[in-house]
Design a protein around this nucleic acid. Sequence first.
DNA 1: ATGAAAGCGCTAACAT
DNA 2: ATGTTAGCGCTTTCAT
Lengths: 354, 354
Amino acid sequence: MDSTTSPRLKRATIEDVATAAGVSVATVSRALRGLPNVATSTRDRVSEVALSLNYQPDPAASRLAAGRTRTVIVLVPHLSSWYFSNVVAGAEAICAEAGYDFMVVGVGSIDACARLLDESHHLERRTDGVILVNLVASEEQIRSLRARGVALSTVGTLVDRCPSVRVDDYSVGMIAAGHLAALGHQRIGLISGIGDDPMNYEVPRLRHEGFVGGLRRFGLTLDPGLIASGNFGIDGGQEAMAALLDADDPPTAVFAMSDEMAFGALMELGERGLAAGRDVSLVGVDDHEFARVVGLTTVRQRVPAQGAAAARALIESMVGDPALAGITRAEDSPIDLLVRTTTGPVAHATDAHS
Amino acid sequence: MDSTTSPRLKRATIEDVATAAGVSVATVSRALRGLPNVATSTRDRVSEVALSLNYQPDPAASRLAAGRTRTVIVLVPHLSSWYFSNVVAGAEAICAEAGYDFMVVGVGSIDACARLLDESHHLERRTDGVILVNLVASEEQIRSLRARGVALSTVGTLVDRCPSVRVDDYSVGMIAAGHLAALGHQRIGLISGIGDDPMNYEVPRLRHEGFVGGLRRFGLTLDPGLIASGNFGIDGGQEAMAALLDADDPPTAVFAMSDEMAFGALMELGERGLAAGRDVSLVGVDDHEFARVVGLTTVRQRVPAQGAAAARALIESMVGDPALAGITRAEDSPIDLLVRTTTGPVAHATDAHS
DNA sequence: ATGAAAGCGCTAACAT
DNA sequence: ATGTTAGCGCTTTCAT
């Protein structure tokens, strides 16, 4: 009897608007969606009526009738890490702006991702397009999605026949190596990331190769004994740094493949009483907001911008001429080196005892 | 002619399944949804056929027909901060598990939030329930949502007539104050957060009050000159700490309302050559993963768990007996103090010069 | 336990 | 420029 049990409000339908405006539902539909062949006067009147009736088209009805969902789904390994949540944030903003509903699904494991993509018929009726974030899809999965009319766009990975935005990971490694080498370091170690996430393996591979390439330019090589890897988080970085420091001939500088790993590495240095930038130089990747806090030198990338760019590309390929669909397009997001205090000139032998 | 232009695949409809199984569509619908009054043999046969046909009900059709969306929307100030993305992560996991589609919308400003909630008819047909994260809704907005059959659940704020999960923010402040006071500090400052986000003001208010209450237990009072505020991020914390240190009689200990603020505060200390835990003690709130990195003492809260709990409560109230709907339920998420290295006993006057 | 049929609220093709 | 109408693929009475 009270407000709790009050009957559900009845909302206005397109028919209510049509009646009130004295036109047919078809005209209302056209008018409200900005389609051609509607007299300006009619369009105005309809809009007015719609507004006054507080009319909102029912998305379910419109999807069913039109076969389009105006929804995009972003598939992401998980939402709780800095990198992924920032990509998602960037994508969400663009989708909202463009009037697309925005769904996100975290694909815990690589299996979960494969399963989801294999059952494209599950995604099919829920979305017009999906954004893959650091996730790989097989040829077959892509074909299947495309066949079902689902557009695709990726960030972090290059996928055939669809727009992708990434950073040039080879350059990332190269820049880091160049910076360290230019400071005079000779024994430079690498903290490599391996995903327990369903992350693609391309990113670490490319950064690794770029790193080696960068060293080579300075006539240096990467001592295999100075490579340690771990997960992309703080723990992984810490363990890797510990391994490097325990080496027979430890490095004087280290490149960590992500800022989070670098933070872990920093912890390990601290625990051993070593000062970053003096005893050991350290450079990361990302420019996590925390990098500033600890003065971490890093190769910055614009993460939300990448999500945004991927969303834009996706939307473009959905609305646009089908000419755009199925075209491989790689967009390189800018990177740059931010020198802070965790990197410095190589210490002289005499300083080592201080 | 090539795969690019191949026709869109035709997927199986409920009618295909019905025909193949030799039953009516109604029976298929019942069988597949686990409704009663279906012979076991029939149900099995239908399931089998559905599987072999790779049948998946069209969500749009089902939503239109049933008036339920099996979708939840989470409204969040933004996705790029640690706290919010972790709440979202927790909620997403639960929704996915329960078979709900999961949408997220970032409500940049407080106005955007109000607008969204005012136009409940916009949310109405898109979702069965919304989770409000540190967002406030007016009596009127809540009533409107409820009238439209949209369930509600919140994290961070207490909203009338719906389930909420939060931490006891009064206790948060109290625990921090108690820890600092017990260490012998007398001049204890407060770094308070104010949202440029559409954040609710309750959280800072309660933490503030709890902090004062905690000091009182030790016979201490909060010097108004030792209160500084800023946004909830690193910058805000840094500026606030700067203000505190510039005070005539600076504090020997400080409570920052979030770890991120504490990180900023830490930066400021570092820039002034002060050591946290020795020169100035600092305690934060959250247990952000970096708290560990810098040894920040903090009042830990379980953030993803809160998102998960809110999602569970929401789903419960949607499926469950309407008895659950419209009931105010506050769930307190646990908090505890994690003592690390940024807090220590008050320095003796003589130490101050060291 | 099962089936027939009437919608749900739109869009789009086809008139006019 | 506007109206008519046939679906879109389900759910849900109401019969049987």
